[in-house]
């Protein structure tokens, strides 16, 4: 091995030395767990539809149930184990969003209900709401600009 002088050389050397994540195994687990969570969602959707609920209500009920299950598992200290196993498989579905709100709420309870639970609840999920909602407003405004003729402004 050559002597390492520059930061660039060191970074390259460290990249070579550091083991990579077991990506194939991770992807396989993410695939089937993620797929399974979506399939459970589909089942709930179909049950709602079978009971005659409309699409929007069914979708909301599905979200709430999945969020509830994920919150419940987080409260039982089980979700982090699923997350460790499934990675993006439990993070990307709406279950991950729920976990990212519930876990800081539990963690920061020690700092009280106002500045702890209330304020820190959004440390991880806050950005999702900020960027998701902002993007949707922009989409709405762009849609408005392209469809001004057909829409009456308030």
């Amino acid at each position: 091995m050559e002597k390492i002088e520059t930061n660039k050389q060191y970074q390259d050397y460290v990249d070579k030395k550091s083991p990579n994540s077991p990506i194939l195994k991770n992807c396989f687990n993410a695939f089937w767990v993620g797929g399974l969570i979506c399939t459970i969602g589909q089942l709930i959707l179909d049950i709602c539809a079978y009971r005659g609920l409309n699409e929007e209500v069914s979708g909301t009920i599905t979200s709430i149930i999945l969020i509830g299950i994920s919150a419940f598992l987080t409260g039982l200290n089980l979700f982090n184990r699923i997350g460790k196993f499934a990675g993006a498989g439990s993070l990307i579905p709406i279950t991950g969003f729920s976990n990212s709100i519930v876990s800081p709420a539990m963690e920061y309870k020690s700092e009280g209900y106002i500045m702890g639970v209330g304020a820190k609840m959004f440390t991880v999920a806050g950005p999702v709401l900020v960027f998701g909602i902002s993007a949707s407003i922009l989409v709405g405004i762009v849609y408005l600009i392209f469809n001004t003729q057909s829409i009456t402004l308030v």
Binding site: C27, F31, G34, G35, G89
Partner: peptide, 11 residues
């Protein structure tokens, strides 16, 4: 499809 979206995230 659900699984594949998660796989993209994992990668």
């Amino acid at each position: 499809v659900g699984g594949l979206i998660c796989v993209i995230g994992q990668i």
